[in-house]
Design a protein around this nucleic acid. Structure first.
Lengths: 255, 255
DNA sequence: CAGTGGTCTAGACCACGGG
DNA sequence: CCGTGGTCTAGACCACTGG
């Protein structure tokens, strides 16, 4: 065996050896299987497994039951004043194959704990939109948006064509949505979310209140859960950033 | 065995059973050991171990080699305009026993990649301060601060008495430090940081540029790495928040 | 169908912590 | 010293994926 006997942590040495080798591979490339690692490093399967799991924890590889272990990539998901409060749009910036898929649409009344957010313009009814963030067919995130019926009457009709709420509000209702506030943390998802994300691993938890840039009226409440192993959320706030930078930013990226 | 045989994921059933039981315990209380779990649930040790490791991933328990498994708690670490750019101060708000300990002090010149941050007032020399964030004697975070010598000449002399840079700048130099920009993400720490944090687990990665509230001049560049299992970082930004709320906030908490 | 990762067993030795 | 969690072995069966 070729690992450091002094610390006697075989699986870490193996993990490090594999990680440095993976540097040269491309995203999605196949990584040696547990069996391969057993043979090459002459270790037991649990130890080989531990090494690959270590790399999974480091976001270096992605493991799929029945299929194999592959080089992983985390989709960038920047949050800040320079970026619109739109998951579809933000994911699009990275040039990756990440999409938002409409899952559920319904209606509800405002819950007591949400009254403050909308105050003083409290809508009677809200359109509740559940969407899944998908990468390569896998669900990597899930979000619930609640949009004021008063601000965007008949919103449901537009959702079939396009899953981007931000875009619909802009094109159909003349609303330029910007963040009023955002909360970002890492928490263990509740059961009903864990089932959708297919993991109980601690995940990004985003909550935001979005308003019309022109009037300042609250339009949307959003809550999202996002897998940390598939999406690299980064929060950037700068006093000098203004949402007006938005168009420039989008223009820069698209050229 | 009392778990759901349909999914045949013994360790998850055991983990869930233990987690619900832990709800009633206090922080720091002892949790059944691997051996205890083996006996109670009549499972093998690797399975019992997997159950406890699952709870560790969920931040529910903390495991200490040679000592035992205990109910865990994550120290709140709020970041936002309402909170000062001061780790000592922020941790103090939670009423917990978290402290900043001075590790290294040295001097350096500005690195090329950092020129932009300080522009146009580029200091010749910087005071480099390494500090460890500690909870119950454990290192749970590590941060490097680079403070402009021009703005705070002789800063080193004050560091022995008090580890709070924010406080020293305020009391000795009349500088009210506020955040100009902050970047927050989750990344795998580099080796030299992993050794300090005692983990290669993905950790909070904070980078901030802090300025004098009065003049707007850049005073400090900060970079921190913080364990996700011990500290619950939460980023909150609100358009209505102003750093002037700071005094009220601190006053509220201290009364 | 063969190969993959997910789970599980029944042992073992070790380093560390606290009494 | 004993109990703890950390590591490791050598097997086993399973569910799932893909050709």
């Amino acid at each position: 065996m070729v690992h450091d006997r002094l610390v006697s942590e075989t699986y870490l040495s193996v993990a490090n050896a594999l990680e440095s080798r993976i540097q040269d591979l491309d995203v999605g490339d196949r990584v040696p299987s547990e069996h391969d690692v057993v043979r090459e490093f002459e270790i037991s399967r649990p130890t080989a497994r531990a090494a690959l799991q270590e790399l999974e924890r480091r976001f270096v590889v992605r493991r799929v039951k029945g299929s194999g272990t592959f080089v992983n990539e985390r989709i960038p998901y920047p949050i800040g004043n320079r970026f619109p409060p739109s998951a579809s749009r933000t994911l699009g910036l990275s040039g990756r194959t990440a999409t938002m898929r409409l899952v559920t649409v319904s209606e509800t009344s405002l819950e007591p704990c949400e009254l403050d957010a909308f105050s003083p313009d409290r809508p009677q009814r809200l359109c509740v939109i559940g969407r899944a963030m998908e990468v390569d067919g896998d669900v990597v995130g899930f979000g619930i948006s609640k949009v004021s019926n008063a601000m965007a009457p008949g919103l449901r009709r537009h959702l079939d064509d396009i899953a981007s709420i931000w875009r619909i509000l802009s094109s159909q209702y003349g609303i330029t949505l910007i963040r009023r506030s955002i909360d970002v943390s890492i928490d263990t998802p509740p059961d009903h979310v864990a089932r959708i994300l297919d993991t109980r691993e601690p995940s990004w938890h985003l909550r935001s209140v979005n308003v019309d840039a022109t009037t300042g009226a609250v339009v949307e409440l959003g809550e999202s859960w996002i897998r940390t192993d598939r999406v690299a959320v980064s929060v950037h706030f700068d006093r000098d950033d203004r949402p007006s930078d938005l168009d420039d930013e989008l223009h820069e990226r698209s050229t």
